[in-house]
Amino acid sequence: MRGDAGADATVPAAAVSARNVSKNYGEVEALRDLSLDFPRGQLTSLLGPSGCGKTTLLKIIAGLLEPTAGEVEVNGRPVTGPGPDRSFVFQDFALLPWASVLRNVAFGLELRGVAMSEREAIAEKYIRNVGLAGFEKSYPHELSGGMRQRVGLARALAVDSEVLLMDEPFSAVDEQTRRKFQEDLLGLVAGENKTFLFVTHSIEEAVYVSDQVAILLPRPSRVSEVIRPRGLRTKNVDDIRRDPEYLDIVDRIWASLRSYVE
């Protein structure tokens, strides 16, 4: 593994670590011997072309898929299935179409047996946090794509898990909404003391939101490089896209990925 992860003494301990993870779907070798640490309280992006196994890795960490070999640890404990320490934000939102926004956001708590009044109070708080106040009684089909993803995000936040797994959460929303989401995400990472795992295929998005960018190469996938932007997190959100370091890293990633396009 190349990159400067090991050299940086300020990197917090890993909340999640994947060790020598391989995953085969029958003949298809999706992941081969992939190892990666996800520092606590930070946002790590998984960046790579479509079909390189990003979703597969995220689902293995979520406990939804079994790896063919290797293992994943969350807080030092091996993952054997889904657990309350991790929650998931789905690319296609995965909202219950027959339930209101309030019930959808409270659904994770409902499944955990939290009493109705308590879980609705918590859900209302997170609905306000993601900027959907006033839409509690609406149904998913009455909302735009961006609003639906806010519901999915609020649901994942409401269960207050330590690790948040996000699978291309912004890919189904329009560009303006996407930019707003990216800014809000920076606020979340700074405000909530959680570890974020963020899948994207957009280089700009990855560099903009991440403390650490892991670049995955096409199948069978392993981590080719880990990049940790140093100065970007202290910058004003409006200035990041003009920052020389931001532009440099975007260029560098493009240079290493371009050979795999086509």
């Binding site: 689902k59 979520a62 406990g63 939804l64 889904p82 657990g83 309350p84 991790r86 929650s87 998931f88 789905f90 690319q91 296609d92 995965a94 219950l96 659904f107 994770g108 499944l111 955990r112 649901r155 269960v159």
Partner: peptide, 18 residues
Amino acid sequence: INRSLVEMARCFGATPWA
């Protein structure tokens, strides 16, 4: 059924009955 609804339920710890 949308696969991700099923995964969502598993992910948030649904019992088989739930």
